[in-house]
């Protein structure tokens, strides 16, 4: 049976035609791809070659090619820069806090959503929970500024009325509260959206597993614990890899809108620092050195996370 199948398919793949004959037949598709290739050459590969300015002292007058080479000067500077170390701490801190809090929240929320019996109610909650994903960070900033305002923000008023605090807290004006504030805000924004992937996997679980478990006397929690959660482990691993790969770039939007002189020591993240150095202070070469390092670290993190996940769970991205 297998052999027969192979025989039927064989002629198509084995067939060897001269290069030009084959190419002419395929030309339309190659041309389609070339549009993409051309785009990437201009918008991805040319900027990549622009990284050489990290090894030069870029100035506007001489341009990329005319500016003098300085070797590893900017990379050496990087290790002596107080704000660079500070940015590393903030980026890693916010990422770890964010991954540590958002995964449990998302998974619990997914499981609870999945247990809702009323389909209509479930649909409404889902649609509502997607809403914050669609708003921009500019809008987020408006919302946060008004919700967290020490004078009239509802959060402060609720906390005061419940007796947790005596005086209003300026959440965005304090170093020590900056991390947790932006992490909670980000969870608020993405909680519902992040459930989509998990819910889709859950909807693919064989219903008979649940039936069998029910007959064996497994209650709701047992079914969640022994059927739903194991089924989610693969996708959780994949999402974690993606999160780890994104650590280096964490925090641009929040820092762009919420960073101020009062919280700068804790809101100065790497991607924001690249922007401050590069476009606010116009130090192109130094900024590029940092972003080059970030790119390398990102790719390495992604590959490492993938390898670890492959070893531990047998599941990974590639």
């Amino acid at each position: 049976m297998r052999k027969k199948e192979l025989n039927i398919r064989a002629p198509r793949t084995v067939e060897k035609k001269p290069f030009w004959v084959r190419f002419k037949k395929e030309a339309v598709f190659h041309i389609m791809i070339w549009f993409g290739v051309a785009f990437l050459i201009v918008f991805a590969y040319i900027p990549m070659s622009g990284i050489i300015i990290a090894f030069k002292d870029y100035n506007f007058r001489s341009g990329i090619f005319g500016s003098p080479w300085v070797g590893l000067k900017h990379f050496r500077q990087l290790f002596q820069d107080f704000f660079m170390g500070n940015a590393v701490i903030n980026t890693v801190g916010i990422s770890v806090l964010s991954i540590g809090l958002s995964y449990p929240c998302t998974i619990i929320f997914t499981l609870l959503l999945n247990e809702l019996r009323n389909v209509k109610f479930k649909r409404v909650i889902q649609t509502v929970s997607y809403l914050p994903h669609f708003i921009s960070w500019a809008i987020m900033a408006v919302i946060l500024n008004s919700m967290l305002s020490p004078s009239e923000g509802i959060i402060n008023i609720v906390l005061q009325n419940l007796g947790f605090i005596d005086k209003p807290i300026a959440f965005l004006g304090r170093e020590d509260l900056y991390w947790i504030t932006v992490v909670v805000a980000s969870i608020w924004k993405s909680l519902g959206w992040n459930t989509i992937v998990y819910l889709a996997v859950i909807s693919g679980i064989d219903e008979s597993l649940y039936e069998a478990a029910k007959i064996d006397g497994a209650g709701r929690f047992a079914r969640m614990r022994y059927i739903t959660l194991p089924a989610l482990s693969g996708i959780i691993a994949i999402m974690l890899i993606l999160s780890v790969g994104g650590i280096a770039g964490t925090g641009f939007d929040t820092s762009f809108y919420l960073s101020n002189d009062l919280n700068y020591n804790r809101s100065n993240t790497l991607s924001y620092y690249v922007y401050t150095i590069g476009l606010r202070r116009a130090n192109f070469s130094y900024s590029t050195a940092i972003s080059f390092l970030l790119s390398v670290v990102s790719a390495t993190l992604m590959l490492t996370a993938n390898t670890i996940s492959n070893k531990l769970t047998g599941k990974g991205l590639f």
Binding site: M48, G50, L279, A299
Partner: peptide, 15 residues
């Protein structure tokens, strides 16, 4: 390759 590695802010700006 372009999904894992990029030029970064300033080279893109210069482009």
């Amino acid at each position: 390759f372009t999904m894992y590695f990029g030029g970064g802010l300033i080279p893109t700006y210069l482009l």
